[in-house]
Every structure is written in C-alpha cells, then in structure tokens.
C-alpha cells in the first residue's frame, strides 16, 4: 500500500486552501493575499483563517468593496514582481473585474513580447446555496475561452490543496473556482507538500456503461447519481475535469471510447458551456458517440429553495439523463 495513514489527515475544504496559501506565503516573501474580509476575519469561509496573524496586514490585505480595483491592483503588483492572490467571495462579482483580468492579465505576456508576466491567482466561489440571482452563478465557461487564462475548479479537499499549490506556482494568471457547497466537506489530505498539475483530469469513479464528465460540486452530484443508477445495474464512470483551461481531453476520450456514451454535467448554463466544448472535442477525436449535456435551466437562480432546486441539476436529473442517453443507443 502506498498510503501512509500517519501522514494523511482528514481536513475541511477550507483548511486545504488555507494550508496551500500559507505554505506559499511562508516560502515566498513576495507573495500577498488581497480581498474583502481576508484579514482578521479570516475569509468568508475561514479559508484564510490565521494567515493575517501569521503574516500581517501588509501581506494579507483587506480591501474595500471594489472588485475592479482589487483585481487591477493584484494584476499590476504581480506584473511588477509580487505574487498575488485576489479573493472575490462570489464569482458573480468577477464581472466587475473582467477588464483587468481579461484585457490586461490574460494578454500581458503576449502583448509585451514576454516582458511582463502576471503570476496572480483570482479565487472565486461559484455555485448556488440559497443566495439568489446575483450570488449563485457558475460562470467558468465564460473564462475558459479567454486565451492566456488558466481555469481550475477542485471538487475535493486533496485537489483544493494541490490545485491551489499549482496556481500559486504558475507564472501567469489562474482563475481558481471553488464552490459554496464544498466548504462544509472534508476529506483526506497528505501532509507532504504536493501539487495537482494543470490539464489533468481524474477518474472519480470507474464504470462501464456511460461517462459523466463534470467538475467542482457537480462531481458530488454525479457520484450520488451513480449510486442511484448502480441499483438498477447501470455502471457509470465519472471524470472530474479539475482543470477547465487547459482541458484534459485525453482522459475524457479514453473513458468515452470505453463506455461509448457521454453525459456532460455542469452547474452553469449549457449554451456555449463546458459540456458543449467537451462534446464537440470528444466527437472530433472519437467520431460520433451517444452524447447529452445537462446544466442549469436557462433562467436566473432564485434564492427561493423551490425555484433554486428547480433550476439546477441534481442526482435524480443526472440519473434520468443517463438513462435517456443509454436508451438512445
């Protein structure tokens, strides 16, 4: 057995993030964290808890409510020699900061002929959890099409740590997307420092009959759907993308060529979504396969629990989508 129980500890999702950020602040005197309530408050989800006390207000900086300037400062400081992590609690509000992120950070290295690099992480929290139309969106697909941006989205504790480590070592801008419903989760985390590389998906559950390709919290939903399907003898494989830009199409295609059926699942919209991209790319490589995509309904996500649930994929809908997909064959 390669596992070493002594060196692996069960931690909360927030602790995994905090550990990766703390290790970076320890190792790199030029690294700083900026954002609303990241200081003494410790982050909206306590994901920066204790860092303010350890590293002080100059390196763990509370900012005013000004997303555009927060990200702009993070970009400029990174471009001029610091390593920055800018935290925006709700992914919805990155829309206020798209100019420095998309027009400057993503293009700086290219447009300056490699003179300027922007080692910055923008950490965003996606997903719906009862907070309404402007605090619930999953907009990853908007960002993964921007040349120059890397986009990662962990679904579990180990990847939350490993992807944050990679993001904080990258020499260009990385958008790190976590999820409100992942913060209460816990899982095993190896005590040694390690990274999860960009562009490497994981097989969360092996299976034979269909492939579900998803990421972030929807991995949990997909796994719940798999349990439901297993009762009726349907055995699904779940691919956790982990990295949305770059995408690991090799892992997706290996699975789909085995199962012959592909369901893409995302919490965001399906129009121009991640599933649309995966479905096209997989078929471009494999030829025609049975394919279906599932995501949020084309409507705003309400804070009303009945309406929120109606607009988003859940395990039952995923299981139904798999059954329909397999019936097509």
């Amino acid at each position: 057995m390669s596992s070493e129980p002594v060196r692996t500890r069960r931690v909360f999702f927030r602790e995994a993030i905090c550990r990766a950020v703390g290790e970076t602040l320890d190792a790199e005197p030029n690294a700083i964290v900026m954002g609303q309530d990241v200081g003494a408050f410790g982050g909206s989800y306590k994901e920066f808890y204790g860092l303010f006390e350890r590293f002080g207000p100059a390196r763990v900086r509370d900012t005013p409510v000004a997303e555009a300037a927060m990200v702009g400062l993070g970009v400029g400081a990174a471009a001029a020699g610091l390593r920055t992590l800018v935290s925006i609690t709700y992914m919805d509000f990155v829309l206020l900061a798209l100019d420095p992120l998309v027009n400057y950070a993503a293009k700086a290295r290219f447009k300056t002929g490699g003179q300027i690099r922007v080692p910055m992480v923008v950490k965003l929290t996606a997903g719906a959890k009862g907070q309404g139309v402007a605090h619930s969106q999953s907009l990853e697909s908007w960002l993964m099409s921007v040349p120059g941006l890397r986009v990662v989205a962990p679904s579990n504790v180990a990847d939350a740590y490993g992807l944050m480590r990679s993001a904080l070592q990258a020499d260009g801008p990385v958008v790190y997307v976590d999820h409100k419903r992942l913060f209460p989760t816990s899982g095993p985390l190896n005590a040694s420092a390690h990274e999860v590389p960009f562009g490497l998906a994981a097989v969360s559950r092996p299976g034979r009959h269909a492939t579900i390709v998803t990421h972030s919290y929807m991995v949990c939903v997909a796994l719940a759907a798999c349990d439901e399907l297993a009762v009726s003898g349907i055995d699904c494989e779940v691919i956790d993308l982990r990295s949305l830009a770059p995408l690991d199409l090799a892992t997706v295609c290996t699975s789909v060529s085995k199962t012959g059926a592909l369901l893409t699942l995302e919490e965001g919209q399906v129009v121009c979504g991640i599933g649309a991209e995966i479905a096209y790319q997989a078929q471009a490589r494999l030829g025609p396969v049975r394919v279906s995509r599932l995501g949020a309904m084309p409507a705003p996500v309400s804070s009303n629990p009945v309406l929120e649930a109606a607009s988003l994929p859940d395990a039952g809908r995923v299981a139904d989508a798999v059954r329909r997909l397999l019936m097509e064959g």
Binding site: A69, L73, G74, A78, A79, G81, D99, N103
Partner: peptide, 12 residues
Amino acid sequence: GNLSIAAGVALA
C-alpha cells in the same frame, strides 16, 4: 484600464 494596474505596480 491602466489606473488600478499602476496602483498595483506602486504596491510592488
């Protein structure tokens, strides 16, 4: 677009 970038440079 360069204003907050410049402030970031100033921070560095």
